[in-house]
Computed example of a mutant assay.
Amino acid sequence: MNQLLAMRAFVRVVDSGSFRGAANQLRVPRSTVSKLVTDLEKHLGTRLMHRTTRSIAVTPEGEDYYRHAARLVAEVDEADGAVRDRKLTPRGHLRVECATTFAQTMLIPQLPEFHRQYPHVSIALGVSNRTANIVGEGVDCAIRAGEIGDESLVARHLFDAGMITCASPAYLERMGTPTSPEDLDGRHCKVGFFSHADGRTKPMLFEKAGHRHAVGDLQFSTNEDNGQIAMLLAGLGVGQCLKPFVLPHLQSGQLVEVLAEWSHPPLPFHVVYSPGRHQSARLKVFVQWLVERFGRTAGR
């Protein structure tokens, strides 16, 4: 038995959730993957997963073994890639996922620079506000905002984006300028976000000198940054936006910052990818380019 190949097959089955998915990733027949896992179980003298015709369930022993095997396979791939990358120009195809506003406002305008540096790397950019299944959908990497809850993914920090509270001049002329977060609880309309997962609205947060105030009861909400910005431009109320997304409208005077002395906890952005995925030269250079490009510009 080729134990490394068997370990790789087992890791791919767990990552993809099926023998067929692992077979597609390894480019071998499904029966080969099944035999490799069976041989590995015989070698270890324990069952790593329970199989049915429709699903698989990893055993507690399998979960422990997966953690070690995934790390080892990733280290072997990294060692192999380090040698190959010295001789190969990064080339090939990358599947990247990110949110709509980030793609339109920040990533796409910078892609010409990446293309000039790495003309042989092509990119398929999935643009949506849902959280893609990186392993199951064959995604090489994704750019995500907020804390990364999935500990199985490798996360590289890109930048922290500050938040700005703002409204249109027409709205402020009509309703007056708020002087405190408490003022928003009264006569002002609030524009914010709701979760596409459960429909709950997210309150606006304000911090100052150790005091924290949350403002809820939104009159208008959306699940996407561009939608919120459009609502603010339409004069529907006061809202909090990520500074990089709304900066052009502030500079043009279409939106005006309010409550500037109050801060909002910054939102971190990361690029994430699966540790089990082969770290190709094209993925390495793209991740590093993201870190360098947005680390020096986007957070300012």
Rank of each mutant, 00 (worst) to 15 (best):
E78S: 14
L267T: 15
A260W: 01
G192V: 06
D140C: 06
L242Y: 03
R95F: 10
V258R: 14
P248L: 12
V96N: 01
A209W: 02
Q117L: 15
T105K: 15
V215M: 01
R116H: 12
T100M: 08
K87Y: 15
S195Q: 06
M163H: 13
V33G: 02
L125R: 12
N223F: 08
K284D: 01
C189F: 13
D150L: 08
F194T: 02
N129W: 12
V191D: 00
K42N: 10
S221T: 14
R156M: 06
F10W: 09
W262D: 04
M231E: 03
L125Y: 00
L107C: 05
E75P: 00
N129V: 08
A155G: 11
L36Y: 07
P119Y: 04
V258I: 15
L184I: 07
A9G: 02
Q25H: 00
H50P: 00
V33L: 05
R30K: 15
I148V: 15
H93D: 07
P109N: 06
D225Y: 11
S31E: 06
H249I: 01
H188D: 06
R300C: 13
T105A: 14
V215P: 01
A260S: 15
V33A: 12
H211T: 13
F286Q: 02
G210A: 08
G21K: 07
A57G: 01
R200S: 15
D77E: 14
L250G: 04
C189V: 02
L48C: 08
Q279G: 05
S195F: 08
V215Q: 02
R187N: 09
S274E: 02
R20P: 01
I148E: 10
T53D: 05
E182G: 13
H115P: 00
R91W: 01
E207N: 09
G45A: 09
K208R: 15
S180D: 11
S263D: 12
G235H: 10
T59A: 03
G138C: 14
